[in-house]
Computed example of a mutant assay.
Amino acid sequence: MRAQFLGKDPASNVGDSPTLFATDRTDRRTYIAQGWAVTDPEVLADVGPVPEGEAIVEIPEDVLRLYTRHPGEGAP
């Protein structure tokens, strides 16, 4: 599996940003989100148990808007 950069938080510092990537999986469309690790105990309690091999990350709304820019669909 490979990852293609879609974009990053425009308000972040260079090299230190929430970022979104699209994968090239052929069985389903998936994305990789790089974000801030969630460590707030109240948030973790609200979310509940996180399975091994998974993580909870926080990303800004501007990065979520990049989901509409999946490669190969004529997006700018």
Score class of each variant (00 low, 15 high):
D46R: 14
L66D: 01
A33Q: 05
A75Y: 06
R69L: 07
A75C: 13
L66Q: 03
A33W: 09
P71K: 10
V47Q: 09
V47H: 11
Y67C: 14
D62F: 00
T19K: 09
E52T: 06
G53I: 15
D62L: 06
D40F: 00
P18E: 11
G72N: 03
G7P: 01
E52G: 02
F5L: 13
G35L: 12
R69I: 01
R28S: 07
P60I: 04
A11F: 15
H70R: 07
E54R: 08
G15A: 15
A75F: 07
D24M: 06
D24V: 01
R69A: 10
V47T: 02
T30A: 09
D16Y: 15
P49E: 10
Q34I: 09
R65A: 14
F5M: 11
P71D: 13
P71G: 09
P18D: 06
V50L: 02
R2N: 12
T26C: 01
E61P: 02
T30N: 03
D40T: 00
E52V: 01
T39L: 14
G35F: 04
E58C: 07
R2I: 00
T26L: 08
D24Q: 01
P49H: 07
A45R: 14
E61V: 15
H70G: 06
G74H: 12
V43P: 00
A33P: 00
N13A: 15
G7N: 00
P51G: 04
K8T: 00
V38W: 13
F21H: 10
A75T: 04
F5A: 13
G7V: 03
S17R: 06
V43A: 13
L20M: 10
L44E: 03
T68D: 12
N13Y: 04
R25D: 09
T23L: 12
A45W: 04
F21M: 06
D46N: 08
T39R: 15
V43T: 01
G7R: 01
G48W: 13
L64C: 06
P10V: 15
P41E: 04
E52Q: 01
I59G: 05
